[in-house]
Nucleic acid binder design. Structure first.
Lengths: 339, 339
DNA sequence: TAACGGCACGAAAACGGTTTCGCAAATAAA
DNA sequence: TTTATTTGCGAAACCGTTTTCGTGCCGTTA
């Protein structure tokens, strides 16, 4: 049996109330008594039962992080950022994965309706399942912060990167490199990050002298084998693209794989770039030009917002909307091909 | 205010006891009453307060996962595996990072001494801080399962891969490829996974006709810049190695970086391989030969063991020791260099 | 001496469930 | 008809804290 406050009370012949107050350094308790209580608590390795105090206080010192996948360089780094601030604040972090399934997302949030967590950090699942579960959570006064993949129709805090600008920058970069036929490889159509990046792409094309018709957006299947097939077909067709932008990490890597298989030289035949956070990007051969998102910082920022809301009741998350810039890292895969 | 069991009781003019029993399908309650209770609970979106029931029942339906880093392909995949079985069992998962600091590990485990979690899955920190905190946890009857990086002196379950065999296989593979001077790049000396892999290396060398003197183990500094310097020095020295085994992913990637910088051709001048779980390995140029650990499965297996212990009180974790095989994936970086 | 104000502490009511035990009514057995 | 037994439900204790509201004691002041 773990040691409880009662054990301390009995041992010191004090009431549990006194022990509790002494442990939290209440002014009601004499210095001498506090001393004795602290000493005994330490000697017996007393750790307060978290659930008892959560129940009484109505707060759990726990937050939830809901992401599509943990094993994804972006989300793993975000979680790292979140954990770092949770640690500073003495909070605990629960992790949940939606695996891009909207109904899992709903089921997970459902469990937060009775005090399990004090707040939620979430990156929305690709397979959208409406927004009712978000609304309900907010209606129940559970602070919610979206990060990266946000839901714009819900009045909750948002921490994103400038996806449209990133899409624009990426496209601009390829155009400057001389690409005439850019193919954008897109994932889940419903995700704001995807549509925003595509919007940036469209904008860059529209602004350029390059005729729109030559450029294309390929919506890739979620299953990697299928996406690979689509990509190979594209690369074997007439008017083969001479530039590829993978809107998510896996698609950029897939482009490498396809080019290797088809004996297309990167960057001579095709210039490739992708949205990515993996350290391996610089080590690919050729090294991969990337749009790198501030994954760790987005996690940190989202967590900081959440804790601000938890600490100051007058601080409203509804208005918070932070945009952190992504950076274009130019590498060999979009170079001229010389040396 | 969230809806409680009392609200249901009041609405239906039943006692809270009846509601509670009806919700858990107790035989004491009539079918008709159960029906009414379930219906109302569903209509009002009733979710039981988890802390109230944890307090009363003395179990939290929550487990803790303690890893050095989340943003590491191996651990991210393990967590994925763990989460998958936790989900099946209806458990919640708390995540903690030690950042390889023994004292953080101690502080984290300290918080588990009063029922916060029903069990712990842990991969030990590189900076060992003794084993007292493990012993204490076990003494307090908190089920503990080590995975990947285990602590052999503590009587807890262990799920590992066959590190010694892996080290042996890797070395054997390089010897067969014709390497005469193999350099092993090691990280934290104290970790069992490192020393085991080195033991495998030593064994393979001892068995071979190759003289021991030519081969070497380089203990790399934890700071990447320093490790890089060490590596460059090694590669520039006389008797430059013609084979490199990175015992952890980052060191294999570092070897690529160094070889690129020094204009050494992989695999012609130096054959490189590494312990790694990243998908990018196959896409590096040349593709990286790896020892791939069953990260996801190790996570799953560890979690399965833990839940077995939680469900059957007579099941003892002390005796459990599972070894899952790693696989050698031969790729271009250790090939002949032709084609 | 009576009234008063800190000081240091305790009794007890919460928090929201679970669980044990008891009890009345309905049914079955004698 | 009396006695068991079953059925369906409620009262209340309990889990370990926190927090409110006393309360007795001491020293001070009128």
């Amino acid at each position: 049996m773990p040691v409880t406050i009662k054990d301390l009370a009995q041992e010191l012949r004090l009431s549990v109330a006194t022990i509790s107050k002494a442990l939290k350094d209440s002014y009601e308790i004499s210095a001498e008594t506090k001393q004795r209580v602290l000493e005994l608590a330490h000697r017996l390795h007393y750790v307060p039962n978290p659930y008892a105090s959560s129940l009484r206080k109505g707060s759990s010192k726990t937050i939830a992080v809901v992401v599509p996948e943990v094993a994804d360089s972006f989300f793993a780094l975000s979680i790292n950022g979140i954990e770092s601030v949770a640690r500073e604040k003495g909070y605990h972090v629960l992790i949940y994965q939606t695996h891009e399934q909207g109904e899992r997302e709903q089921a997970i949030l459902q469990a937060f309706h009775n005090g399990r967590v004090d707040g939620v950090l979430l990156s929305v699942s690709g397979d959208a399942a409406g927004t009712d579960h978000f609304e309900e959570l907010c209606a129940n006064d559970v602070p919610l912060v979206f990060f990266d993949r946000v839901c714009t129709t819900v009045a909750a805090a948002r921490v994103q990167t400038d996806d449209q600008v990133s899409g624009y920058m990426a496209t601009q970069h390829l155009l400057e490199a001389g690409c005439k036929r850019i193919a954008v490889l897109a994932a889940d159509k419903q995700l704001s990050i995807i549509s925003d990046r595509i919007a940036g792409f469209e904008a860059a094309i529209a602004e350029s002298a390059s005729p729109r018709g030559k450029h294309t957006v390929l919506y890739c299947d979620a299953a990697e084998e299928n996406a690979y097939g689509q990509l190979v077909t594209l690369l074997q067709g007439s008017d083969r693209p001479d530039g590829i932008i993978g809107l998510v990490e896996s698609l950029a890597l897939l482009a490498y794989k396809a080019c290797n298989a088809l004996q297309l030289s990167i960057p001579r035949d095709v210039k490739v770039m992708g949205f990515s956070n993996t350290k391996a990007a610089a080590l690919l051969q050729p090294s991969l030009t990337t749009i790198t998102q501030p994954a760790f910082d987005m996690g940190r920022q989202a967590a900081i917002l959440l804790f601000k809301a938890l600490q100051k009741s007058h601080f409203s998350l509804k208005e918070e909307w932070h945009v952190l810039p992504s950076v274009l890292e130019k590498r060999a895969s979009t170079g001229s091909g010389d040396a």
